[in-house]
Design a protein around this nucleic acid. Structure first.
Length: 432
RNA sequence: CGGGGCGUGGCGCAGUCUGGUAGCGCACCUGGUUUGGGACCAGGGGGUCGCAGGUUCGAAUCCUGCUGCCCCGACCA
């Protein structure tokens, strides 16, 4: 992509509403534009990153055996009356009336709808286990949206729902998602720690929040320091096998959110030099909630002995848009964002230091074509800005590698390669 | 929902107390000189000062109501 043809509205000055670093950088680097409190447009660069995160989540869900579909943003109030949550959910739910005075709502989550889909088609235990997920925009009318995309009202969430014939089978499904989450966050360059969590209005008795430690996080958390360096299950992990050992290993070390903690318990479980009391960003949560929805909504299957039983369910959320903010919180410096390779909007930023100079243009144009043909996604700064501005822009938007060519390099047939993260530079012949 | 703050050109702000031609920096446009870490000179365009009402000869400025946004707290998959 040539920058001269792209839409990258970067800001030199920080809009005053942005308090935390990820919000500031997202506005300055032209990733998002606020449209109302907690509601954002995704500008091209931000949307590109969002799609990369989405794709990683998708690949790991698929690997763990979940199946993607897509449910609508608008739901019918009747469906929510079946579970009893239409009245229980409160003001966070955005309620809408259509032209026929039908009561609708903008979905804050999809347990009811997925249960409705399940009960319409699935009759037999032989069709289980089943895990269905989607990535869809949610709306929760937060009292106080804040921190940019981290606590928006409209946000993109991946939510998966598992259906099993028994609690034992449901825990196996839970474990698959647990392991998938460990892998998902790792691939995005995040260290996310699963912590025992409250189940909240979704209900149930087994739940973990996946937390990225950050001073700007909204939750207080307590955990064992060894969890920060625990190895993540690799590509060879068998999602059709027994994962309980991995989960048991991870949950053997103390980790809990502030709502769940007993200080005496924490102190008993973790030696003093291993205690971490910090703040964290919740980037995902897993729940097992049994028959909370299947029972009132009549989602049953026939078992091998011919009886009908309500299915045991779990739900598993990843805050896709929030993850993007968390990555920036975890990976930036004074000059801007530092994207992990796996989610970077472009692989390479190619900087032409003197656009309009025939030799420099020729060298850059040629290299741009080569890199692009080699399968790299290149943002080519072919504008007539001055070098200082180009360097500042490249650092701000944070692509992992910068390739810099000016008149001197063009004459010598050399390009300077800069690693955004380390700042290391080396000069290489362009032919390579 | 309780408390606090803010709304003046695309962004950041001054001007409001004490009413009297709407300003500054950046950005943008034109011409020129420039180009290895956010250039310089000259010229130029763009704002019914959040909205409505009131006071006044005259309102960005004073009064009333409304609205939007931000921060702290409470709340919260």
């Amino acid at each position: 992509m040539r920058l001269s043809q792209y839409f990258l509205p970067i800001l030199k000055e920080t809009p005053k509403e942005a308090e935390i670093v990820s919000h500031r950088l997202m506005l300055r680097a032209g990733l998002i534009r606020q449209q109302a409190a907690g509601i954002y447009s995704w500008l091209p660069l931000g949307y590109k990153v969002l799609r990369k995160i989405e794709q990683i989540v998708r690949e790991e869900q698929d690997r763990a055996g979940a199946v993607e579909l897509l449910m609508p943003t608008i739901q019918s109030a009747d469906l929510w009356r079946e579970s009893g949550r239409y009245d229980a959910y409160g003001k966070e739910m955005l309620r809408i009336t259509d032209r026929h005075d039908r009561e609708m709502l903008y979905g804050p989550t999809n347990e009811e709808m997925i249960t409705e889909i399940f009960r319409s088609y699935v009759r037999s235990y032989k069709e289980l286990p089943l895990n269905l997920y989607h990535m869809q925009w949610k709306f929760r009318d937060e009292v106080r949206p804040r921190f940019g995309i981290m606590r928006g009202r409209e946000f993109l969430m991946k939510d998966a729902y598992s259906f099993d014939v028994s609690k034992e089978k449901a825990v196996e499904a839970y474990n698959r998602m647990f392991v998938a989450y460990l892998r998902t966050y790792k691939r995005m360059g995040l260290t996310a720690i699963p912590m025992r969590a409250e189940t909240g209005p979704i209900g149930g008795d087994l739940s973990h929040e996946f937390i990225v430690l950050a001073d700007t996080g909204e939750s207080g958390v307590f955990c064992h320091a060894d969890l920060l360096n625990k190895p993540i299950p690799g590509d060879d992990v068998d999602f059709r096998g027994d994962l309980s050992g991995i989960v048991a290993d991870w949950t053997s070390l103390y980790a809990a959110t502030e709502d769940m903690i007993e200080m005496s318990e924490f102190e008993a479980a973790v030696p003093e030099d291993k205690r971490i009391a910090a703040r964290g960003i919740e980037v995902g949560q897993t729940f097992y909630f049994g028959t909370k929805y299947s029972e009132p909504m009549g989602a049953t299957v026939t078992t091998s002995d011919g009886t009908d039983v309500p299915v045991h369910m779990g739900s598993y959320g990843v805050g896709v848009s929030r993850v993007l903010g968390a990555i920036i919180e975890a990976s930036h410096d004074d000059n801007g964002i530092i994207w992990p390779q796996s989610v970077a909007p472009f692989d390479v930023g190619l900087i032409n230091l003197k656009s309009g100079d025939a030799a420099t243009d020729a060298a850059c144009d040629g290299l741009y074509e080569q890199l692009t043909n080699a399968g790299l996604d290149v943002l080519y700064d072919d504008t007539d800005q001055r070098p200082g501005g180009k360097f500042a822009t490249a650092d701000l938007i944070g692509v992992p590698w910068q390739v810099i060519i000016g008149p001197r390099g063009a004459a010598a047939g050399e390009a300077e390669i800069k690693n955004r993260k380390t700042g290391e530079r080396e000069t290489l012949p362009i032919a390579d």
